[in-house]
């Protein structure tokens, strides 16, 4: 399969400001179907903002974002179409604490796809099985460990059967021994051919699964490289400096 002919996310000349602060400067990037992109960089570099623009949780002011053939504009219909194709997992899990694990998963299919309750629950159980957490289905999120919560959050994002998954520092809020169980689930997804865009500091994970690594600093993409080269012979001194600090 020729990946280059199959762009699923196209971002051209993206600019974004928070008030007067220029957070994203002239971002250009393309993600192809089945690709796994890891975005890293120091805090405040705009990496989270960039992926939050992809499903318009953040609004951009200039430039063009096309996701799965739909351009993100102010149009509510376009935004809804894009969000249906894009799942997202957050640093702080953000499960709905007043609903059971199962209800967290069935909410979106029941309300957006108008799926019958029984069918939605079957789908939810299948997905919980995929993240290996079926035994927790009837518990409240607060009763789960961080790692389990994040796996439920991944299952919840998968409920709408998205074509693309965005991960915003999925393991940053976890205890070290729970990081692995979450990364394993993400790796499994990668293995199954999901298109993914992951913001993370887990360099081992990046090395293992990424097709490309983007390094961002001060709102710009500094370097875009294959993981083998990125870690051994980065093109820019800024990348080298960053890597020397975290590894």
């Amino acid at each position: 399969m020729n990946q280059l002919n199959n762009p699923i996310i196209e971002i051209t000349n993206l600019n974004k400001w928070f008030g007067n602060f220029h957070v994203l400067k002239n971002i250009n990037m393309t993600i192809h179907k089945g690709e796994i992109i890891v975005i890293c960089g120091p805090s405040g570099s705009g990496k989270s903002t960039l992926i939050r623009c992809i499903n318009r949780i953040e609004e951009h002011q200039k430039g063009k974002i096309i996701v799965a053939g739909t351009e993100l504009t102010g149009k509510m219909k376009n935004i809804a179409d894009v969000r249906r194709e894009v799942g997202m997992v957050f640093q702080t899990f953000d499960l709905f604490p007043h609903l059971t694990v199962l209800e967290n998963l069935t909410l979106a299919p029941a309300w957006i796809l108008k799926m019958p309750q029984k069918k939605a629950e079957e789908l939810a159980m299948t997905l919980l099985k995929r993240v290996q957490i079926t035994d927790q289905a009837f518990k409240m999120p607060g009763q789960l460990s961080g790692g389990q919560q994040q796996r439920v959050a991944i299952a919840r994002a998968l409920c709408m059967n998205p074509k693309i998954m965005l991960f915003d520092e999925p393991t940053s809020a976890l205890d070290p021994e729970m990081v692995k169980e979450v990364l394993d689930v993400i790796k499994q997804l990668a293995h199954d051919g999901m298109t993914m865009c992951v913001v993370t500091h887990e360099m081992g994970f990046a090395k293992q699964v990424a097709n490309r690594i983007l390094f961002m600093d001060q709102g710009e993409i500094v370097e875009e490289n294959h993981p083998d080269k990125f870690f051994i012979s980065p093109k820019y001194d800024r990348t080298q400096q960053f890597l020397s600090q975290i590894i």
């Binding site: 249906r84 799942g87 953000d94 909410l107 957006i112 959050a153």
Partner: peptide
């Protein structure tokens, strides 16, 4: 974060508010 998580699932504003 709760509202962002819900809207990233594609839920409409009134659904997010009510549920």
């Amino acid at each position: 974060g709760q509202i962002e998580a819900a809207s990233s699932l594609g839920l409409k504003n009134w659904t997010i508010t009510c549920f």
